[in-house]
């Protein structure tokens, strides 16, 4: 084991430029990956926030008896998709409108707003199809005049999220692929730089596993160091964005960050396993 570590150290010492290059390319790939991850994280967090406000508003016909409304509220609250149902009386509606409109509150003085039911859905049931289905069911009550649920708005919200998700997956795979290729080829350069040593090792009877081990450790360490640098860069970018835009966006949770750094190690390990395996098969 200590021989292996000495081999690793020797490799670093002998090809410092190549080592720095490897680490930096790993760091850059993971940084790009991390930046995208941060955007995705914040977009989906923002969406979740907005999504919580998805609601169905059922406007009630004037003069609907309160008993009928209560019964309907009970029914609707029992729908599996529904989290809660609130009755908004005309007075409440007016108060709310005034509050939201601020300086224009006088305009509402004379207005009579209809009573309505405000229906909020459970998480997981806030997609356009479910919202629409629930809205249609609510519409079947005879005393319901109109149902609004911001069809277009809900639809738009979901397409933004879907596009963001798909872009994330595509870009993520592309970045990971590029990272593996870059790491594989930088390690391959290291392997070629040490081809003579490898051939001598094989000559004196070193097993393939023995020959491979220092390169695997090398690749893993470079991946981890690259991952740490990427994490640092991502954090700097995150801080700068927060400061410039004056917002408070979210950063990766600790376990996600650890996972990302380890992923760097695994990518480094994979890249070197591939190139060393390739080399050993060739000689």
């Amino acid at each position: 084991m200590s021989l292996t570590l000495r081999e690793v150290a020797l490799g670093l010492r002998r090809a410092p430029l190549l080592s720095v290059l490897s680490v930096l390319t790993i760091a850059c790939s993971l940084f790009a990956f991390g930046l995208f991850g941060l955007v995705a994280l914040n977009v989906s967090e923002a969406l979740r926030h907005v999504e919580e406000r998805v609601e169905i508003r059922a406007f009630l016909a004037d003069g609907t008896p309160i008993e009928a409304v209560s019964a309907a509220v009970g029914d609707i609250a029992a729908f599996p998709e529904v989290a809660r149902v609130d009755i908004i009386t005309p007075e409440q509606a007016l108060a709310r409108a005034r509050k939201e409109m601020g300086e224009f509150q006088d305009v509402f003085d004379a207005a009579v707003l209809p009573a309505s039911l405000e229906i909020r859905l459970k998480p997981g049931y806030r997609d356009p199809t479910t919202v629409k289905a629930v809205a249609e069911r609510v519409r079947t009550y005879s005393f319901v005049d109109d149902v609004r649920y911001g069809e277009e708005w809900v639809q738009k919200l979901y397409s933004i999220r879907n596009i963001a998700g798909a872009t994330g997956v595509v870009l993520g795979i592309a970045f990971a692929g590029v990272a593996v290729i870059i790491i594989g080829s930088t390690i391959r350069m290291t392997v070629l730089a040490r081809a003579r040593e490898i051939s001598i090792m094989r000559l004196v009877g070193a097993t393939d596993g023995f020959v491979r081990r220092p390169f695997l450790i090398d690749g893993f360490l470079k991946g981890v160091v690259g991952g740490l640098i990427a994490l640092l860069l991502a954090w700097i970018a995150y801080t700068l964005v927060n400061r410039t835009l004056g917002i408070q966006s979210s950063f990766f949770a600790t376990h996600t960050a650890v996972f990302g750094v380890l992923a760097g190690g695994v990518i480094g390990l994979l890249g070197s396993a591939l190139s060393v395996g390739h080399h050993l098969r060739d000689v």
Binding site: R196, E197, S199, I200, R202, L203, V204, A206, T207, D208
Partner: peptide
């Protein structure tokens, strides 16, 4: 994968010595 073990029973030398220079 058994070839390295087999080679330990041999000694091999070449015209160009094949020593590690460092």
């Amino acid at each position: 994968r058994d070839i390295p073990i087999f080679r330990r029973r041999l000694g091999i030398v070449f015209q160009d010595f094949r020593l590690l220079e460092d």
